[in-house]
């Protein structure tokens, strides 16, 4: 089997050209890539990603397909990736800090963002379609979205036993039809919440601070009430739920009521102040930096951001219909 070795200034790649390509167009991709590397041209566009080890496997020559699907929380299109046989689903989060660029070996990439690609439970994406369905239907009939054609691929991502966590199955012979079950769904979500909160507790994760003060002050997990971890976990899960379902889950979890700030002004002020202090202390990195932490401790923000998130979520609840309504 002939092997083509291509070399450029940065790295050497060995490519097996004749390894029975599945499709003609795929071998074309390879040829194009090889010639690009040879001519030492910078690619027209590129991006930096962090992906699970098993996502791309060099030996089987099969890649992943990145598509837009409807985000279950926002109802807008965001990027997901299917494994080559449409059995695994990944979500893609972009880390984006405004003033960043990459040095990649001996090249510059102006866009300094990167993409964290992680497994996502496909049930989260299937849920809204199940909830919306008027009748008990086969899964492939449910997963239809005019705006996002690839939605149908979700049907091969979840097995029967997975779907049973959120829906009731009516079966006759090989025919399976599904009906959304809120009871099952809430139990399924509750399990997830408990697993996440357990993990947060084990990691001594700081769940008592807001977005602005970040996870600076490491608190002793013994002192943090169990419910704080649960609430944080609930907040994370809610990133995958529409507002109604999130509200239902909150009720189901029976979380202690969130303390609302007595004076709204108190909530507004500290972040701005802290931001300023941040800028000043950070400007002297060579000084004893343990000092840097002191100002933050004083600025401890009393109200958790989750309480505010919930307060705002409660105010502006969007109906599921608004996600799926025709434009």
């Amino acid at each position: 089997m002939p092997r083509v070795t291509r070399k450029n200034s940065i790295q050497e790649n060995v490519v097996d050209v004749n390894s029975s390509p599945e499709k003609d167009d795929k071998s074309n991709i390879k040829v194009a890539a090889i010639s690009a590397a040879r001519s030492n041209n910078h690619p027209e566009s590129q991006c930096v990603m962090i992906v699970p080890d098993g996502m791309l496997n060099g030996n089987n020559q099969r890649g992943i397909v990145v598509v837009k699907l409807r985000n279950p929380k926002t109802g807008t299109g965001t990027l997901y990736a299917f494994s080559h046989n449409n059995t695994k689903l990944y979500e893609i989060n972009q880390f984006d800090e405004s003033k960043r660029s990459w040095f990649l070996d001996n090249s510059v990439q102006s866009d300094g963002s990167f993409f964290l690609t992680t497994n996502v439970d496909p049930l989260f994406l299937i849920l809204p379609y199940l909830q919306k369905a008027k009748h008990t239907s086969p899964i492939d009939q449910l997963l239809v979205d005019e705006d996002y054609a690839e939605t149908e691929k979700l049907s091969t991502c979840s097995k029967k036993e997975d779907l049973e966590k959120i829906a009731d199955c009516k079966q006759s012979g090989s025919f399976q039809a599904w009906k959304y079950s809120e009871e099952k769904t809430l139990n399924w979500l509750e399990k997830k919440v408990s697993r996440i909160s357990q993990h947060l507790k084990e990691k001594n994760f700081n769940v008592t601070q807001s977005a602005v003060s970040s996870n600076y002050i490491k608190t002793d997990s013994e002192a943090v009430p169990e419910s704080s971890f649960t609430r944080y976990a609930f907040g994370l899960i809610s990133e995958y739920l529409c507002d109604e379902l999130s509200a239902a889950l909150e009720k189901h979890l029976d979380l202690p009521a969130v303390q609302k700030p007595a004076n709204n002004q108190d909530v507004k002020e500290p972040p701005a102040k802290r931001q300023k202090i941040d800028g000043e202390t950070k400007s002297e990195p060579l000084e004893d930096y343990s000092k840097d932490q002191k100002p933050f401790a004083k600025e401890k923000i009393q109200v958790s951001a989750k309480s505010k998130a919930l307060a705002s979520a409660a105010k502006g609840s969007k109906s599921i219909a608004s996600f799926f309504g025709k434009k």
């Binding site: 490519v15 890539a33 791309l56 990145v66 690839e150």
Partner: peptide, 13 residues
């Protein structure tokens, strides 16, 4: 419009 990502380089490298 789908976007395919394929692995070309030799991961054992």
């Amino acid at each position: 419009m789908a976007l395919n990502i394929q692995q070309l380089c030799d991961w054992d490298s």
